[in-house]
């Protein structure tokens, strides 16, 4: 998919939570997140984190020079979850 787009002239960046899969499929540009499957953009209601993840990915799209470069931004799942719980509390959700 990503390869097809690059071949058609569109620069792409993909997000991954499974580095071993990424190593096999060799996407042109990708960014790894040590997150739970299905939670590539973080945790519910954490708008700032969701936004940061997109911005980091776009930054990689601009900055990567070599095909296959994987970016490792400094997000952690433990921190994301903790912040997510605090945000939910502040919103009065459980």
């Amino acid at each position: 998919m990503q390869r097809a787009l690059e071949r058609k002239g569109i620069p792409t960046v993909s997000l991954t939570v499974a580095l071993d899969v990424t190593e096999h499929i060799k996407p042109p540009r990708s960014m790894f997140l040590p997150f739970m499957m299905g939670h590539h953009f973080g945790v519910p209601y954490h708008k700032e984190l969701q936004r940061e993840i997109i911005l980091e990915a776009l930054d990689h799209l601009v900055e990567a020079k070599e095909s296959g470069e994987v970016k490792f931004p400094p997000f952690t799942w433990a921190k994301a979850r903790k912040e997510g719980i605090a945000i939910k509390r502040s919103l009065g959700l459980k």
Binding site: Q2, L5, R7, K8, V13, S14, L15, F41, L61
Partner: peptide, 19 residues
């Protein structure tokens, strides 16, 4: 098919997320 649709849509860049 999707890549063609993305090109036709006038995209300059694409963000991909394999779930």
């Amino acid at each position: 098919d999707i890549a063609d649709a993305v090109v036709k849509s006038g995209a300059d860049i694409a963000l991909l997320c394999p779930a």
